[in-house]
Write a protein that binds this DNA or RNA. Structure first.
Lengths: 145, 145
DNA sequence: TCGGTCCATAACGTAGAGGTTATGAATGAC
DNA sequence: GTCATTCATAACCTCTACGTTATGGACCGA
């Protein structure tokens, strides 16, 4: 039933107006009029953006008189960040490769002990653009369907 | 002219098939056939997913004989993470507030040590609808759906 | 040269996103 | 009670996303 919360969170974040709304909400809760004013789109459009954000769990809302205030709920952002953190080693990879390269160069010259860390030379680095792994892994691919 | 790279990156991440493709690519580069097999969608569908990922800068591709291998380019993921990091204080906030609340309770009745585990009592529960950042409003009237 | 494999693209359908204007319900102020 | 404000919703349009099947180009092996 729940297809995957990340779908809704990332989709919500894909729209610049919604990101701007979230940024605005870091300065404090705001009602629809306050959120509509700076964005030169119509009020119903903002209302729909808010509904998208609410369904993604990124905001909560409560009444106050005739107004309805939106409040930033950042936990899904934390979950999205946690998801992305899985890839950190891959965008650090270039630095690691630079490290490996420098280490290799240093090996030709004498010494430097810290260059011998086996974890530093990640497999993915050598693997770069040299696939040749034809069906090596078992069918562990995740389908979120 | 470039509307904002985050648009494309988050939009690309919003699709579970594309996220699965990225996950697969952490195990090594793959051609279209290898990427199509596990996902029970047609090959043209995968080709389009790959184009979306490529436009978002999340993969690069190179030929190898008749095949075309995709390679994970994680830097945009790092940029997306950097963007989300701006909100870290807001999802940490709940823990901070929970801490503050528990501290306050402890001062009243010095006892009950097991209540201090932040993992045990879900933080979002306390955080929910307790704005007080600026708008200083209360009243819990929320609607979902 | 010929057949097979890999892949992109075209053509098409459906569904949803994002925008608009018009309108009405809910609530506070007078 | 009456009016003004706030907001959601309906009705509508356009554009894009995502999927399909059909097809053809590019390239390798024999």
């Amino acid at each position: 039933m729940t297809p995957d919360p990340l779908n809704a969170v990332f989709a919500a974040l894909a729209d610049p107006t919604r990101r701007a709304i979230l940024a605005r909400l870091t300065e404090g809760d705001a009602n629809v009029v306050e959120l509509t004013t700076p964005f030169r789109v119509s009020q119903p459009a903002i209302s729909r953006h808010l509904r998208v954000l609410e369904r993604a769990g990124l905001i909560s809302r409560n009444r106050r008189a005739t107004a309805r205030f939106s409040h930033l709920e950042a936990k899904p952002l934390g979950e999205a960040t946690a998801y992305l953190a899985r890839y950190r080693e891959y965008w650090d990879e270039s630095y690691e490769r630079l490290d490996a390269l420098l280490s290799a160069l240093k090996e030709e010259r004498p010494a430097d002990p810290k260059a011998t860390d086996p974890e530093a030379t990640d497999a993915s680095a050598t693997d770069h653009h040299a696939p040749d792994r034809k069906g090596a892994h078992d069918g562990d691919d995740q389908r979120h369907g």
